[in-house]
Nucleic acid binder design. Sequence first.
RNA 1: CGGGAUGUAGCGCAGCUUGGUAGCGCACUUCGCUUGGGACGAAGGGGUCGCACGUUCAAAUCGUGUCAUCCCGACCA
Length: 577
Amino acid sequence: MKMSKLFVQTLREYPSDAEVVSHKLLVRAGYIRKLTSGVYNYLPLMWRVLKKIENIVREEMDNAGAQELLMPFVQPKELWEESGRWEVYGKELMRLKDRHDRGMCLGPTHEEVITSVARDGLKSYKQLPVNLYQIQSKFRDEVRPRFGLLRGREFIMKDAYSFATSQEELDKEYKNMWNAYTRIFKRCGLDTKPVQSDSGAIGGSVSHEFMVITDTDAGENDVFYCNDCDYSANSNHAISNLPDAVIDGKDYFKETKILDTPNTHSIDELSTFLNIPSTLILKSLVYIVDKKPVIALIRADKTVEETKLLNAVGGLEIRIATSEEIAELMGNHGFNTVPGFIGPKGFDDVPVIADLTVKDMKNYVVGINQTDKHLVGANHSDLNRELNYVDIRLVERGELCPQCGKPLNVTRGIEVGNIFQLGTKYSKPMNAVYLDQNGKAQPYIMGCYGIGISRTAAAAVEAHYDEAGIKWPVAIAPYHVVVVPVNIKDELQMSVAEKIYEDLRNKGVEVVLDDRDERAGVKFKDADLIGFPFRITVGKTITEGLVEYKIRETGELLSFKPEEAVEKVVEAVKAVI
RNA sequence: CGGGAUGUAGCGCAGCUUGGUAGCGCACUUCGCUUGGGACGAAGGGGUCGCACGUUCAAAUCGUGUCAUCCCGACCA
C-alpha cells in the first residue's frame, strides 16, 4: 500500500471527548471516528486490525472443533418472550417495531436465536456435543457508553454456544474453550488472567472472565487475586476470610436498651457518638430489586456487593433505594424514620438478607426505625425473625485468600473474554431438546463463550503504547512494516525504497511505502503514531549501501543492507504467523 | 435516572460580558523554498455559529424551549 493513497487522517491533537489512552490514540492515529455516542466507524486501518483478531479467533475456534455460522442481527420479540428475557432484559435491549407493529430487537447476544437454531437441527444425542459460533456486531444500549471501543453500544463480538448431553461433556468443552482462549489472547500479544466471575444477565452457574490487567481507569473491573496461590476473582464474585475483629459488644453494653442517638445519620457519626468500633453496628440497607424492596444486613465496617445480593434474592435488576422509596416503605409499615435509623424489625413482608458477617455478632447496635434512636446491646433474638445468611459482602484489599489465607491484592482489569456454563437455563424454557439413547426428550446442557473483538483491539492499545503512539503486537498490526524514503526526490533513495517495498510484498509481508512528499519528521511521527511494528528508513546512508531498521516496540535502531533489512522483517513476521 | 458542563470549518479553540452580519492554529488546494523527528513564505477553498421560537431596525452574542455530546454519581443509612 502506498501511504499517499492510504485512507488515514492523523491528527495533530487528541480529540477533546476522549478519556482513555486507547480512545485517544485510535482517534488521533486515524483508526476510528465516532458516528454517534458509543458507535464508531472502523476506518481501513482499524478494520485490518479487527480482521486480524477475527482470523486468530477463527483459527483457534475451528481448531478447537467449533463451527462458524452467522445469525441475524435483528431478532423477533417472540423468541425473547419464550426465554422470559423480553420482560427482564432492561433498557440495554434496543427494542424496535417493524411496519406491521411487530416487536423486534437488535441482538445484544444470541442465546435465544442459537437455541432456536439448535432445536431445529439437533434432534439426536448422536449429533452432540456441538459448538457453534459467529463473529458479528452486537448492540447494547448502554446507560453510559464511554472509553471509545472499550464500552461502545455497537461492538464486534465472537459468541460461541455449546450443546451437550451431560455436565461432563459441558465441563470438557468449557476446558476446551478455556484453552482456546488462552491461546487466542497470547497470539494477539495480550497477557490475560482468567478470573472467577458472576454470570450476570446471561445466567448460569460457573463462569470465568479473561482479563487484561491494567492499572488505568480503562480497567472497569476490580480483580482480587492471591500472589501465593492461583485464586483470582472479579469483585462481584470474590470471597475472602476476614481478620479477627471485635464483634461482641458485651464490654460496651451491660444491657439491651433503646438509646437516644441524635443526628447519627452515618456509621461514622454513630460509632463516634457511642465510642465503639463500627464492627459492633449492624447496618440495614434498603435495595430495590426488580421494583420491590429488599433489606440487606451487614456488619457496618463492610460493604454490600450488589451483584451478590441480587443473586441471593434471585432478581435481575438491583439498585439502592431512593430516599422517597424509603419514606414510602416506612410509611407503609407505620414508621416515620429516615436513613440512619432503619432496622430489620417490623418488615415481615419484606425479604431480609443477612451477610455472613452478621452471623456471629453479639450485643451490637441496630436501628429500630425510630429517628434519633438505636437499640444497643442487641442480639438476633431481639430482631423477631429468622435471618437468612448469605455472603453479600464486597471483598477489600488485605482480606485473606479463601484458598490459602494470605492477604489478597486488587487490580483493575479489562474483560476481553468470558466463558459461562449455562446448563439448561435456555433449553428448558424454550423446549430445546434432543432424544437420548432411550428415545427420551432431554434439554441440551449449554455453555456460552464470548470474546469482545473490538474491545480486544482497544485493550491491546492500552497494553502497548508510549508517548509517541501505538505499539501494535506484530500479529494484529494493520501492516507489519513501513518503508520510509527520507526524500522522495532523491532518485537513489526512492528506487531503493521501491525495491524493498516490492521485495517485501513478494514475500507476503504487509507493507506501506511512505511515498508522500513530506519532510522526514512528519513521516516518522506518523509511523510512530500509527504504530507499525517495524520501520525501514532509506536515507543518506544509502550511498554507503545501508538502510535503517527500527523496531517500534523496543525503539531499537539497526543499520543493514537493504536485503538484510527485508530478511529481518520477513523473519519477524513469520515468527508470529 | 439525578448533578455539572459544552455545542462556532474535518480536528483543536477564540469571539458572547457590552447585539452591528465570524476569526485563529492544524488539516486541505496552488506556487515557491525546504528534505533525518510534526519547517518557512505567499495566495486560496471550506462554516444556515446544534435546532426552533421569541426580543430587536439588527442575534453566534440576550430570553425560552428543544436536541445532541462529554464528565461525575450511580451505593453504606
